[in-house]
């Protein structure tokens, strides 16, 4: 009989635990695995208004990648990956490094940098929509101060609107990155700093050559998190630009929701969702796997 190495007694004695866990199994298998599977299944059927069982192969996928709106949303995701993820990492690192330099009011500043994390994306979207409204927001105010030629109307133009979204996202997401990197910085052996100082390494060089490499795991965690954030970004867009102007700020998450509930195109929506599922798995499974390997037998953090 196989016995658990940790608990000693054979596992069949754990029947109350197994019983208690069965509803969780049901949720996991039916609502997580099952629904995801059904979504993938639907993407191969001729479903439009209502789900049907007629099999059409990759038709929806071929159509999907011929849809301008979908391709725009993918391109926008790419733009946000560069601007938003990189922006959050850079700003978050600078904030964390600054707060780590024994500054006054550290707690107050940290509270200020992090509070956007506590508000809804809807709130963030609405606030920045107003701030970037050229007639009423920052542009109007600065022009009112006498700088007549000042323009800040990114949300109004197809080419710039997605960058406006990135700024709003940066406002909300930089604090989280800061907190993660600050925790990483605080975990670094203090004598590393002293050793560098004794050797006369300039501060910037210490950061680049010694500290940043030490932060790699924290940076990787933050980057993964930020990327996941973009993939699921829906409410921010709805509240801030509603995908506009035109479809300039569409994102896959919104594309799928629109096709599911407004446009009644289940085939396109489920095909998009399946693409999303595969790309997320492609990122996350290796990340989790590497993390599990690195940790070896150690307990997860």
């Amino acid at each position: 009989m196989k016995t658990s190495p940790r608990n000693g007694p054979p596992r069949f004695r754990h029947w109350p635990a197994a019983l208690a866990l069965s509803p969780v199994w049901a949720i996991a298998l039916l609502l997580f695995v099952g629904t995801a599977g059904y979504t993938v299944y639907l993407s191969f059927t001729a479903s439009r208004m209502m789900p049907v069982n007629e099999f059409v192969g990759f038709e929806h996928y071929i159509k999907l990648f011929g849809t301008r709106r979908w391709n725009t949303s993918l391109a926008n995701m790419g733009i946000l990956c560069v601007t938003y993820v990189l922006g959050c990492l850079v700003l978050g690192f600078l904030l964390a490094a600054a707060l780590d330099r024994k500054v006054r009011f550290e707690n107050t500043l940290r509270t200020i940098f992090l509070y956007p994390q506590a508000v809804s994306f809807v709130v963030t979207g609405l606030v920045w929509q107003w701030l970037m409204n050229p007639g009423l927001g920052i542009q109007a105010a600065v022009q009112g101060w006498g700088w007549e030629s000042f323009t800040f109307d990114w949300t109004q133009h197809r080419g710039t609107a997605i960058y406006a979204v990135a700024i709003a996202g940066l406002w909300q997401g930089a604090g989280l990155t800061m907190i993660l990197l600050l925790a990483g910085l605080r975990g670094i052996d203090h004598s590393l700093w002293q050793a560098a100082r004794v050797e006369g390494i300039p501060l910037w060089r210490t950061y680049v050559s010694v500290i940043l490499p030490e932060l790699t795991p924290a940076i990787a965690t933050a980057a993964t998190l930020l990327f996941m954030g973009i993939v699921r970004t829906y409410d921010l867009i709805v509240a801030m630009t509603n995908g506009g102007p035109g479809s300039a700020t569409e994102l896959p998450a919104k594309f799928i929701m629109d096709n599911l509930f407004d446009r009644m195109n289940i085939g396109a929506a489920t095909a998009g969702a399946s693409v999303m599922l595969i790309s997320v798995m492609a990122v996350i499974v290796p990340v989790l796997y590497i993390r599990a390997l690195r940790k070896g037998g150690r307990k997860p953090v």
């Binding site: 004598s191 050793a195 490499p213």
Partner: peptide, 8 residues
Amino acid sequence: FQSYALYP
């Protein structure tokens, strides 16, 4: 140093 503080 106590921890040697070698650049990891």
